[in-house]
Amino acid sequence: MSISQPPTSGQRTANKAFRLSTFAFAWLSVALVVYIVCMITWEAIPAFREHGLGFITGTTWDANTGEYGILPEIWGTLYSSLLALLIGTVFGVSVAIFLTEGFLSGGVFALLKAVHLQYHPLWGRLPEQLEHLLKNLVELLAAIPSVVYGLWGIFVVIPMIRPVANYLHEALGWFPAFGTPLSGPGLLPASLVLAIMILPTIAAISRDALNAVPNKLREAAYGMAATRWEAILYVILPTSATGLFGAVVLAFGRALGETMALAMLVGNANVISVSLFSPANTLAALLANNFPEAGQKEVGVLMYAALVLLAITLIVNIIGAAILQRASKNLEEVR
């Protein structure tokens, strides 16, 4: 008798069940996203009927009078995110350049060479190891929970920048950005911490973008007698510009939705101010602060605010992903 047999009916059923269940779960994950969007929209509809688009331009939030508006939160969200983005981009792209263009490993190699250890079996691996370590350290920044950053912000960042901020206010108070003193929480400390939180995102995606620039372009630039920075500024950065831009947009999406650091540091004040030191509020922080104790009425309004946040972050994220896709297509051409 042969060992080989056609699959038993049990095996056939198991196979069918398996295929069906993967199919079902694939659908389920799509349905989940649709459900999330629909549910938030559905819950927001009553509040939308009541407050209409005036909700977005209103500036008061008062549960007693039933007057609701989120303009200060939208302003605070955009202000803090853009400020954080500015700081995070400068640092994140610097880190990416520092890691990809061989500054660290080249420098360490030169140092080792000075003491003739560059080919030592142990010391000789130092340049690569340090580069790896630095990359991991930057990634570690992303692993720390945001609530821990918030705690750190309250007890380290705010006390540290307060004297500087208040000095700036006193000396240059006529300048709108320094228009108020920093009494504690405020836009600047919140944005600083937010910048730290998005830095790893920018650094990681920018690093990929810079690494994707083919080496032959670097050679071409150096062969044309470009200095290192001429090569970076005229060739490497322009070639990877789309990818860098995608990194910035995705980081912007992260910043818009980040909650805890802002809820803890921004001051939760319903004001619109251009001052860096003024307390403010953001959409995510509004949700975090008001949801736990919200009455039935307020939940509807908060759902409306959540819908606005959802719409903004969704659009920004989709744009960011589309840009990155374009970037990888562009680079294929160069190769």
């Binding site: 083919p214 032959k216 372009l217 050679e219 071409a220 630039a221 150096y222 062969g223 044309m224 007698a225 470009a226 200095t227 060739v235 322009p238 070639t239 562009n330 051409e333 160069v334």
Partner: peptide, 20 residues
Amino acid sequence: PVAIRRHIGMVFQQPNPFSM
């Protein structure tokens, strides 16, 4: 070395125009 490369130019095996 940068000054040297100003006087001694190079053309490579693979065509490598910049993406401009």
